[in-house]
Deep mutational scan, measured.
Amino acid sequence: AVSDRLIGRKSVVMEAISPQNSGLVKVDGETWRATSGTVLDVGEEVSVKAIEGVKLVVEKLE
């Protein structure tokens, strides 16, 4: 599936994300709604860990 190619990809937070609120990330020039178990600020680099419905699950790059 097209979405499977996103797992493991680097992306950049475009709208802040917290455990309570989804935000936005940009992956390969496309904007996606995303969630995370931690707070992520605009501009942080993250990695796509999973896809749940139409949202990406991301975490901060170490």
Rank of each mutant, 00 (worst) to 15 (best):
V2F: 12
L40A: 04
T38A: 11
E30G: 06
V42R: 06
V58H: 00
E44L: 08
K55F: 15
A1V: 11
S22Q: 09
E62T: 12
G53N: 05
G29R: 04
V25E: 01
S47T: 15
E15G: 06
A1F: 13
L56R: 01
G37I: 11
G8Y: 03
R9H: 07
V13F: 01
R9S: 07
A50I: 04
L24K: 10
S3G: 11
S11H: 01
I51L: 07
K49V: 15
V25P: 01
K60T: 05
T35K: 08
K60W: 04
V48A: 00
T38S: 14
V58L: 03
V25D: 02
M14S: 06
V13W: 02
V13A: 02
I7A: 03
D4I: 13
V39K: 11
E62K: 11
S22A: 13
A34F: 02
G29M: 06
E15T: 11
G53F: 04
V46D: 01
S36M: 02
V12P: 01
T38F: 11
V39L: 10
E59Y: 07
W32F: 14
G43P: 01
I17S: 01
E59A: 10
E62P: 12
I7E: 00
S18Q: 05
G8A: 03
S22Y: 10
L61P: 07
G37C: 14
E62D: 11
I17N: 01
G8Q: 03
W32N: 00
D4R: 14
E52N: 11
A1M: 12
K10Q: 08
K55D: 08
K26A: 11
L24D: 01
L61R: 07
E59K: 05
E45M: 13
Q20N: 12
S11C: 15
I17V: 07
V48Y: 02
A50H: 06
S47M: 15
G43M: 03
L40K: 00
V13Y: 02
A1N: 12
K60H: 07
W32G: 00
W32P: 00
G43Y: 04
E52L: 12
V46A: 15
A50D: 06
D4C: 15
A1I: 12
V27R: 00
N21V: 14
V27S: 03
G37N: 15
T35V: 14
D41Y: 14
V57W: 09
S47A: 10
V57P: 00
E15I: 10
L56G: 00
K55L: 15
T35M: 10
V13C: 04
G8L: 05
W32T: 00
E62F: 13
L40T: 02
K49C: 12
V2Q: 11
G37Y: 14
V54Q: 14
G53E: 04
D41F: 13
T35S: 09
D4G: 11
E45K: 08
P19D: 04
I7K: 05
A16S: 09
V27K: 02
N21Q: 14
I51R: 07
G8I: 04
E15W: 07
P19A: 06
L6K: 03
L56T: 01
K49I: 15
I17E: 01
G43K: 03
L40Y: 06
V58R: 00
A1P: 11
G43L: 04
I51T: 05
N21Y: 12
K26G: 07
D4A: 14
R9D: 03
V48C: 03
A34I: 00
V42C: 10
L6E: 00
Q20A: 10
R9C: 10
L56I: 04
L6C: 06
T31E: 09
V48N: 01
S47K: 14
S36H: 00
I7R: 06
R33F: 11
V13T: 02
E15M: 12
V12Q: 06
G29A: 06
E59G: 08
L24Y: 11
E52C: 14
V2A: 13
G8V: 04
R9T: 06
D41V: 12
S11G: 15
S18K: 06
E59C: 08
E30K: 10
T35C: 13
E30I: 11
G23E: 03
Q20D: 11
V12H: 05
D41C: 14
S18M: 06
L61D: 08
V58K: 01
V46L: 01
P19K: 05
V25F: 02
R33I: 15
V12L: 10
R9Q: 09
L24W: 12
T35H: 05
M14E: 06
W32H: 07
K55M: 15
L6T: 02
G43H: 04
G29S: 07
V42W: 04
N21H: 14
K55R: 13
S22V: 13
I7H: 04
V12Y: 10
I17L: 04
E44I: 08
S3E: 09
S3R: 12
R33K: 11
V58I: 03
P19Y: 05
G8D: 03
N21F: 12
V12K: 06
G29Q: 07
A34Y: 04
D28R: 05
R33G: 10
E62V: 13
G8K: 04
A50F: 07
G53W: 04
G29Y: 05
A34D: 01
S22I: 12
V2L: 14
G53Q: 04
A34L: 00
V48G: 00
T35R: 06
A16K: 14
T31V: 14
L6R: 04
R5E: 07
L56C: 02
E62W: 12
R5L: 09
L61V: 10
K10P: 09
A16V: 08
K60F: 04
E44S: 07
L56S: 02
V25C: 06
S11T: 12
L6A: 01
I51Y: 07
V57F: 09
Q20K: 10
L56A: 03
V27L: 11
V54H: 14
M14L: 14
L56E: 00
V46R: 03
G37E: 14
V58P: 00
E15Q: 13
K49Q: 08
S22E: 15
V39F: 15
L61I: 13
V57A: 05
G43A: 03
E59Q: 09
K49H: 07
R5D: 08
S22P: 14
L40I: 11
E45L: 14
D28T: 02
R5G: 08
V46Y: 01
A34S: 04
S11E: 02
V25G: 00
G53L: 03
K49R: 11
N21D: 08
V46F: 03
R33D: 08
V2E: 10
S47I: 15
V57Y: 09
W32L: 04
L61T: 09
L24E: 05
L24P: 00
A34T: 04
E44C: 09
K26M: 15
V13L: 02
T31S: 08
A50M: 07
A50G: 11
L6I: 07
T31N: 09
G53T: 03
V57E: 04
V27N: 03
V48I: 14
T31P: 05
E30H: 09
E45A: 09
E52T: 09
R9L: 10
V12I: 13
E15P: 00
N21T: 12
S22L: 11
L6M: 08
E45T: 13
R9K: 11
V12S: 04
E52Y: 10
V48R: 01
A1E: 11
V13N: 00
V12F: 09
D41R: 13
S36Y: 03
I17A: 03
T31F: 14
D4L: 13
S3L: 14
V57T: 05
V39S: 12
I51Q: 06
G29K: 06
E52V: 13
N21M: 13
I7T: 05
Q20Y: 12
V2N: 13
K26H: 09
G37W: 14
W32M: 04
V57I: 10
V46H: 00
A1T: 12
V46G: 03
K26P: 01
S36N: 00
S3N: 11
W32A: 00
T31G: 02
L61C: 10
T38G: 09
N21G: 10
E59R: 05
A50Y: 08
T31I: 15
L24Q: 06
K55V: 15
S11K: 00
I51A: 05
E44A: 09
R5N: 08
V54F: 14
V39I: 12
S11L: 09
R33P: 14
G8P: 03
Q20W: 14
G23Y: 10
E44G: 02
R33T: 13
L6Q: 02
D4H: 15
L61W: 13
K55A: 13
K60M: 05
V58F: 00
L56D: 02
L6H: 03
S18T: 12
I51E: 02
V54L: 14
M14W: 09
G53V: 04
A1C: 14
E59S: 08
S3K: 10
K49W: 07
S36W: 05
V57S: 05
L6V: 06
V58M: 02
D28V: 04
